[in-house]
Amino acid sequence: MSLMLPAIPPSSRSITGVAHDLLGALTGSAAELPPVRSAVLAVVDGLGATQLRSHAGHARRLAGAMTKKDVLSSVFPSTTAAALTSLLTGADPGRHGLVGYQVRDPRSGALVNQLSGWEQAGADPAVWQTEPTVFERAIALGRPAFAVGLPEYAHSGFSAATLRGADFRSARSAADRMAMALSLAEEHEGALVYCYLPEADKAGHKHGVASAEWVAALEDVDAAMPAALPAGVGMLVTADHGMVDVPATRHLIIDEDSPLQQGVAAIAGEPRMLHVYLEEAARADDAAAEWRRETEGAADVLTRDEAVRGGLFGAAVTEAAASRVGDLVVPARGLWALYDGAAEDQRAQGMIGQHGSLSPEELRVPLLRFGAFAR
Rank of each mutant, 00 (worst) to 15 (best):
S2C: 00
P6V: 12
P6E: 09
V18S: 09
L22E: 12
G24T: 07
S29M: 02
A31W: 06
R37T: 14
R37L: 08
S38Q: 00
S38T: 04
A39R: 02
A39P: 04
A39I: 02
V40G: 03
G48L: 01
T50M: 07
L52M: 08
L52D: 04
R60C: 01
L62Q: 00
A63R: 12
A65V: 06
A81G: 11
T85F: 06
L87G: 08
H96R: 05
R104T: 14
P106R: 11
P106Y: 11
N113P: 07
Q114W: 08
D124K: 10
E131H: 04
P132R: 12
V134P: 00
G142P: 04
R143M: 09
A147N: 06
S156A: 00
F168L: 07
R169P: 00
A175G: 07
R177W: 02
M180H: 01
A185Y: 05
E187H: 02
H188A: 03
K206S: 13
V215G: 08
A217Q: 03
L218M: 10
M225G: 05
V233C: 06
V237R: 01
T238K: 03
D245F: 10
L260E: 13
G263V: 15
A265P: 13
Y277K: 08
A281N: 11
E294S: 13
G297Q: 10
V308P: 00
G310L: 04
F313P: 02
A315R: 14
A316T: 13
A320H: 04
A320M: 03
L328D: 11
A343M: 10
R347E: 11
M351N: 13
H355C: 12
H355A: 11
R364A: 13
L368H: 01
R369V: 03
F370C: 05
